[in-house]
Amino acid sequence: MHEYSIIQSLVDSVDAAVKETPDAIVMRVRIEIGDLSGVDVDLLTTAFETFRDGTCCANADLLIERVSTQWVCPKCDRPIAHGAVLRCPCCNEPARLDAGDEILLRQIEMEVPDVSGLRMR
């Protein structure tokens, strides 16, 4: 249910990023969603399709890269097996979350009429 408020934040972030480029049309928005982020990818897609009308993302496709959860040992970097107790079997250290909680806007792809005037980023 919070996926709707995440889309609101996403659209605001995209809007801020494209403001500097006049006449840009956002074609694709690439994001990363971790499996441990608490965000449902299907609900997020539905929310995006519902709310993009009338925003800077009205013509955009939302491309979601899912990131698998990975816990590791903070001491020896050994990955913890999926489904295992979150403690390194060798060092006995509590695991550290290395990947999986991402809720990240990675890249925006925009159509720009006059490329020669665009500042390279």
């Binding site: 995440i6 972030s13 840009a24 994001i31 990240l104 990675r106 890249q107 665009l118």
Partner: peptide, 20 residues
Amino acid sequence: GCGDPEVVPVKVQQKILARN
């Protein structure tokens, strides 16, 4: 400079909940 549109990628790498 013929004016054809081109798709330009802009790296953002920002948390979506950055404002929160």
